[in-house]
Amino acid sequence: MAPNKGSKTRSRKDYRFSLEYRTRWSDNDMYDHMNNSVYNFLFDSIINSYLIDHCGLHPPTSAQHPLMASTRCDYYSAITYPKVAELCLRVNKLSRSSVVYEVALFEEGVEQVKAVGEFVHVFVDRATQRPNTGGINPQLRQGLEKLLVVPSPSPSSSLSDPSLSDPASKL
């Protein structure tokens, strides 16, 4: 995936959901900044927090659950312990069985974005581990639509338009 050229200019107002995270001593690596793996941990955490609190996802029992299809991150400047990170979330694309999230990490009191990541989830049936033939269930979809920044085509139109690829088709 190519970098999102506009992501370096993102501000908090570009996102619809946020969480605060107090960095820990163990988040820093030997280069005295937050380790790259911690960014992925935080991005995954804000997404799952939103899915659980606002979309009705119950990870141990939900009939559908998300599988990670891809992830990437653009790093712009470091954050270190003991700073407070502000994680911001939006949905850039919502397809029949998949969703493309964008997560930004800001430092409390600093306007410039520190990093912007992209996560792609494919929602699958718990029993088959395949995308559900009916797509993302309505409760999940309604919650995700609240974060959508650019309206996506309806699930039925994405099936008829090959230019609107759905990562679930690769499974």
Rank of each mutant, 00 (worst) to 15 (best):
E86G: 04
E102P: 13
M68K: 02
D44Y: 03
H54N: 15
F41E: 02
R72I: 03
Y76D: 08
K93Y: 00
D27C: 06
V113E: 08
A85N: 00
M30C: 07
S158G: 10
S152Q: 01
G117A: 10
D44S: 01
S37G: 03
D27A: 07
Y39E: 04
V91H: 05
H33T: 00
R141D: 07
T71W: 15
S160I: 14
D29T: 03
S97D: 09
N137K: 12
T128I: 05
R24I: 07
S169G: 14
G109M: 13
F123L: 01
S62R: 07
N92L: 11
D74G: 06
L159F: 02
Q129G: 05
V91A: 06
L171E: 10
S158D: 07
A127F: 05
A115V: 03
R10Y: 12
D14G: 03
L164Q: 07
V122F: 08
W25N: 12
Y101D: 15
S165C: 11
Q112R: 09
E111Q: 13
D44P: 05
K13H: 05
V100P: 07
D125I: 05
R24Y: 10
K83S: 14
E145R: 07
G117S: 12
L57H: 04
P153H: 00
D53L: 05
I52Y: 01
A2L: 08
P138C: 11
H54K: 14
L171N: 09
M1Y: 04
E145T: 13
G6C: 11
P167L: 08
Y50P: 13
K13V: 11
S163Q: 10
V116A: 13
S98D: 07
R10S: 10
L105N: 06
V100M: 10
L67W: 15
D53Q: 10
